[in-house]
Design a binder for these strands. Sequence first.
DNA 1: CTGAAAGCGCTAACAC
DNA 2: GTGTTAGCGCTTTCAG
Lengths: 349, 349
Amino acid sequence: MTTIKEIAKLSNVSATTVSNVIHKRYEKVSKEKRQIVEETIEKLNYSPNMGAMILANKISKIIGVISFLDGREDESPLLDSYVAGMIGSLEENIRNRGYYTMLHCSSSSKDLLKIIGNWKFSGLVLMGIEPDMYREVADKIKIPIVLVDSYFLEKFQKNGVGSLIDHFNNVRINDFQGGFAITEYLIDMGHRNIAFVCDEKKLHGPGKKRYEGYCSALKKSNIEPLDCFTVSKHQDERWKIYDEILERGLFSNITAVFYASDFYALDCIRFLASNRISVPEFISVVGFDDSEYAKYSIPPITTVKQNLKSKSECAIDRLTYMIENDDNSFSNTVLDTEIVIRDSVKDLN
Amino acid sequence: MTTIKEIAKLSNVSATTVSNVIHKRYEKVSKEKRQIVEETIEKLNYSPNMGAMILANKISKIIGVISFLDGREDESPLLDSYVAGMIGSLEENIRNRGYYTMLHCSSSSKDLLKIIGNWKFSGLVLMGIEPDMYREVADKIKIPIVLVDSYFLEKFQKNGVGSLIDHFNNVRINDFQGGFAITEYLIDMGHRNIAFVCDEKKLHGPGKKRYEGYCSALKKSNIEPLDCFTVSKHQDERWKIYDEILERGLFSNITAVFYASDFYALDCIRFLASNRISVPEFISVVGFDDSEYAKYSIPPITTVKQNLKSKSECAIDRLTYMIENDDNSFSNTVLDTEIVIRDSVKDLN
DNA sequence: CTGAAAGCGCTAACAC
DNA sequence: GTGTTAGCGCTTTCAG
């Protein structure tokens, strides 16, 4: 492994000069020396020892990507195609900006604090962290943090800690707008009796906003929204209930179901298919996320698109800006969504 | 950040003793001191500065997880649910063994060599690397490497570099056995005219072995295998050809198709569904991998299960063993598969 | 502009 | 068993 010292010796300069060249502090280096140094760096294929860098600098160029989302049924969170895609996209952006990605899943706050101490992360991307844990972590460290898909503005407010609002960087989509848009689309297609379905967990986060969008769109058309239906995370429980609904002919006036996520929308279509009932002829179904589940469903599902790429780009842009400009101010980014029309909605007009 | 020195001072011992306690070199420390040190470590919530560790040790406890697989259509490889699941599972195993995961995608060998130099990785997991690049990388570094899903034994042999065979650690599944088993299942179900389909790229790797398994199972039953069909990576091209096949009534004697991956099996089912043709009534379809595509297809696809968990556990077991025992011997691990029977095959008996 | 020197936190001889 | 010391590779004062 070539070191700065060797470069220095071979270039007939001091280590300091080499360091200055590396860090592009060109005001401090003459043109000639700079050129010589750059050449020998190139020739020896020098690359810095990050260990020494951390030690001297207290900065590692590592961005910690931490996922707290517990996947369905105890699996790695990466088994969820949304999370996996997000992490892949984050890695890409991090790499393109000259940082390194350290991936760490499902940790306790103690765990997390420890790993942060170990590595002197330059910055942190926290995916789906819960309010309590965020507060615990953020209080104890001073490195730039960007949250992705975190939904606890209201919670802070309700607890009377209103002053904390916006005291974090969060990148998320406009769930309200997405819920509104797709509900409006359903109304346009002639639907009046539309159900909204979500799981328990999501209801505390994005699901709530999506539901509000749904309600708002219906009210705008003078339609009374229905209460939110909740489904279990476990397929057998879900299908049991679906069985019952089907058998008893419950909710037979409903013509469309808006699922708060593609996964459940697909699950519903699969349930119906297993009973030889087809979508959208029997009932229309829409989802949310535009994940692979929606794309590769039969029929493909009309849904609300979350643009992973712009989300992750936005997060890493913000994070690197904070790191490089020593800026610790806060900004909340809300990305608009767009609906993707496929084949799971029947036109009632 | 608390350091070893502070621990030492507060415990009235030297830094060396603290270091010895941390590294569990208990022969070198008296019981009393050990206890005192452990207590203050606990109290101060000490965690080591990995930068210093790298510098002093040339060892980082980082395992580099590198993916070379170029995802479908230029996306991050993590968009493929198989790769994503694998990485998630690797991370879990790495974490459980006290190492850290650095994720890096789609790099050139130069890139890779550089990042290895930067970080003094303790070990490397290379996913789907090509022979040439592997040789280039492996020649230049001496850290433990485990390959996952690499398929180039034959290639080395053909090139006359036979002596290199087994000069690497590879963990993969027994594609031949998997291909054999599912083909035999199809035969058991009364199918005689079975097609095998694969994409160009896979054909050079796992697809080949799966095809051999297919051939072998057919021959065992005295059935002449068909040539391997290749499909394009691009959906529109695939569907165009499928259209033609359907229109002209080509291959109408075929009763079952064995796809070398679930993704294409699902794609075929989707194509048929879009033409109002249902599986398995019209034709039987099986896949390979047991990915989400197979699980959530309509109908669910009968397939060959790759156990991600055991694969990644196996890889990390091997890697940490090599690291911790300074063992650089080679061993090739081939994991058996099992078939998962679902609803995409018609019983012709 | 340039270089010498100290120090970041930890480990590994080595001497006691 | 225990402590002292030197040094890993880099950055950063601070003199020149």
